[in-house]
């Protein structure tokens, strides 16, 4: 379908909106940072930031909260991208925090929840007053209500009942010392938009997003990779399947989906046809309760 004259296609409109937001962050805030996990959403966000300030360098550090339980393909990717774009990488290490005794691992070995204090600590130490993330409103119902500029008090907490109204494209980034803003420039993107963007702008993503053979076992009906982080139990049968990842999180709780999609076109075809949300299909962390995400966000989660 051809685009009428002087009308932006929806992908161009989302890109323009995202670049506007990223620029507002840098213009309004004193010490902004960009949260970069090596996942597809933060990759798109990073590309918006690169485009927003070109030919100048990205004028803020990229922050990775490293659970110590990452897929090696993702870490390798992260380091290569940091090198390629001359980025300033700040790592908040969950392992260091465990070693120092400031946080404790949950009994099931998950480090999802203890990322939050490490994130808050990293924000405080670096005195960041704004952290941009790649979260999208279509991911989860609490996120559907969150502002683009989302205010956090000096404990890093989100108060969903007391959010700043957000009108037109006027984003209010005013904070007192100690308070901060989480910013979500991809708020209006869907999972399909992310893949469409990656295809149309020819963006490289970590290999684990493409279908590949992997040793996996079933846990709670989801395919988990068998590795040092997710160790199969006694009764678990380890099999080799062709799988890919729809989200990239902690290796202890991010599951793979069976897939033949080994090219970007096939991924888009598969994404358009899927009947499960990406978090519902692959994230153990959102399955705890109806309001699992809202509760974690109130504590200061991404």
């Amino acid at each position: 379908m051809t685009q009428p004259a002087h009308m932006l296609s929806q992908l161009d409109a989302l890109e323009a909106e995202g670049i506007h937001i990223v620029r507002e962050v840098v213009a309004q805030m004193e010490r902004p940072a960009l949260l970069f996990s090596g996942g597809k959403d933060s990759i798109c966000l990073l590309h918006l930031a690169i485009k927003a300030f070109a030919p100048a360098a990205v004028p803020m550090p990229v922050v990775h909260i490293d659970t110590g339980q990452n897929f090696p393909e993702v870490l390798e990717y992260r380091d290569r991208i940091v090198e390629k774009y001359g980025l300033n990488l700040v790592v908040g290490s969950v392992q260091d925090a465990i070693d120092a005794g400031t946080v404790r691992e949950e009994p099931n070995g998950s480090r999802n929840r203890i990322q939050t204090p490490v994130l808050l600590d990293t924000i405080e130490k670096n005195r960041f007053d704004a952290c941009m993330g790649g979260a999208r409103r279509d991911e989860e119902k609490a996120r559907a209500k969150e502002r683009v500029f989302s205010f956090r008090d000096d404990f890093g907490q989100w108060d969903p009942r007391n959010q700043r109204p957000e009108l037109w494209n006027l984003y209010n980034g005013k904070v007192h010392p100690g308070e901060s803003i989480r910013v979500f420039p991809l708020s209006n993107w869907t999972e399909l938009d992310i893949w469409d963007y990656i295809r149309s702008r020819d963006i490289e993503v970590p290999s684990i997003y493409y279908a590949h053979d992997r040793e996996v076992f079933l846990r709670d009906g989801m395919w988990m990779a068998a590795n040092e982080f997710a160790v199969p139990g006694d009764g678990d049968e380890v099999v080799t399947k062709k799988v890919r990842y729809r989200t990239v999180g902690d290796a202890t709780l991010t599951a793979a989906v069976e897939s033949e999609a080994d090219t970007i076109d096939k991924i888009i075809e598969e994404t358009a046809a899927t009947r499960l949300t990406e978090r519902g299909a692959t994230r153990g962390d959102d399955r705890v309760s109806e309001a699992a995400m809202e509760d974690r966000k109130k504590e200061g989660y991404f």
Partner: peptide, 11 residues
């Protein structure tokens, strides 16, 4: 919104 003035030698 913002004035872009690169601090790199090439621009």
């Amino acid at each position: 919104q913002f004035v872009i003035r690169p601090q790199q030698s090439n621009a």
